[in-house]
């Protein structure tokens, strides 16, 4: 049995870096780890998902409906899209930022109102936070991914230094300080 984490969002939001960093943390903890990524066309502003699984032994690298222990959603609508992948006992951590998909921009469809209420009504264990404000406080909207990792770290039982080490290994040196700040804000 593995513990399964999904990172979902919109192409360009930095989900790949988040999954790589998480992979580093879990490897450092001595687990068997698999991370499945999205590259290519689907990265271009579309709905993206990466899978991170860890445990004694991990076989399949992907996560299916009803299997995720955690879903870390970088965008509100994407949280709703991927909700069926959460275990009934799983945890959903959501950035409340909204990014309009093209069918909404063109007016063909509507961004549903009150997504959070619907998610809570589904019975999911929901933590909602605005990750954009702390990311901007740390120095860039691009740091949303690390703020959210901070929020995930708070709910996982690994020492903080393991996360900070992974951050140092994954992030380019000139962005390290900003990301350390973003992580701390997400974790607080």
């Amino acid at each position: 049995m593995s513990t399964d984490i999904m990172i979902v969002g919109v192409g360009g939001q930095g989900t790949l870096l988040a999954s790589r960093l998480l992979g580093q943390v879990l490897t450092a903890q001595g687990f068997d780890v698999k991370v499945s990524e999205v590259h290519g066309m689907s990265q271009r502003g579309g709905s993206v998902v990466t899978y991170v699984k860890y445990g004694q032994e991990v076989t399949s690298p992907i996560i299916q409906e009803g299997e995720a222990d955690y879903i870390l959603a970088f965008e509100l609508l994407e949280a709703a899209r991927w909700l069926p992948f959460l275990k009934p006992s799983g945890k959903l951590i959501i950035n409340t930022q909204k990014l309009n998909p093209m069918p909404v921009i063109t007016g063909a469809e509507e961004y549903p109102a009150d997504v959070l209420t619907a998610l809570r009504a589904s019975g999911a264990d929901v933590t909602a936070l605005d990750a954009l404000t702390p990311a901007l406080e740390a120095g860039s909207a691009k740091a949303v991914n690390v703020v959210l990792l901070g929020a995930l770290a708070k709910r996982m039982e690994f020492p903080e230094e393991v996360w900070l080490n992974a951050l140092e290994k994954t992030v380019p040196p000139r962005f390290l300080e900003m990301n350390q700040k973003a992580f701390a804000l997400g974790r607080s």
């Binding site: 919109v10 192409g11 066309m41 689907s42 990265q43 271009r44 502003g45 579309g46 709905s47 076989t59 399949s60 992907i62 299916q64 409906e65 009803g66 299997e67 609508l77 994407e78 709703a80 899209r81 909700l83 069926p84 992948f85 959460l86 275990k87 009934p88 998909p101 093209m102 069918p103 909404v104 063909a108 469809e109 509507e110 961004y111 549903p112 997504v115 619907a118 998610l119 009504a121 589904s122 019975g123 999911a124």
Partner: peptide
């Protein structure tokens, strides 16, 4: 996927959470 194989061979499916929100698609864009 593992889910497909479990369903076809074992007839097993995992329970999950749902909402009845209409969710617009998010195709890739320029």
């Amino acid at each position: 996927s593992q889910a497909l194989i479990a369903k076809v061979i074992l007839g097993e499916e995992k329970s999950n959470l749902t909402t009845d929100l209409p969710i617009p698609g998010r195709p890739p864009v320029l």
